[in-house]
């Protein structure tokens, strides 16, 4: 599957931020799995027609968010920490909702039960 990136020059959002949002979204949804190598700064900048510094800034911000890591040999790699947590939470939530449904609880009761559990810390 080809994952595409787009930078719109008419968009007032700076190009580095457009890129950062797309990549962060792709990582959080698991589209870019942990261990995926991102293109080199030079390659992505040339492909998009951007300055290398723009792509470098995007990668730096993603690294600061803990979504990617820069490694000397492999380059920039998706660490997938956030994506993995999100995926685990989604599985737990689905399981909980299914079990609660069997007990005859509706959406409002399920939310209330979660709130109570959260308030207990």
């Amino acid at each position: 599957m080809t994952v595409s990136l787009r930078v719109d020059s008419a968009d007032p959002t700076p190009p580095y931020e457009q890129l950062r949002r797309q990549l962060a979204g792709l990582i959080r949804t698991g589209t870019l799995a942990s261990g995926t190598r991102l293109p080199t700064v030079r390659q992505l900048a040339q492909d998009l027609g951007l300055a290398p510094g723009t792509v470098m800034r995007t990668y730096r911000e993603l690294e600061a968010d803990g979504l990617v890591a820069s490694r000397r040999v492999q380059g920039t790699v998706v660490t997938g920490t956030v994506g993995a947590v999100d995926q685990r939470l989604a599985v737990l939530a689905a399981s909980f909702v299914e079990e609660a449904g069997r007990l005859g609880a509706g959406p409002a009761e399920i939310r209330a039960a979660v709130d109570v559990a959260l308030s207990r810390g």
């Binding site: 020059s9 190598r37 293109p39 390659q43 992505l44 040339q46 492909d47 998009l48 027609g49």
Partner: peptide, 12 residues
Amino acid sequence: ARVRGSAGIEHR
């Protein structure tokens, strides 16, 4: 072969 503003996540 370039389309400015569009790229794929790939390693060449």
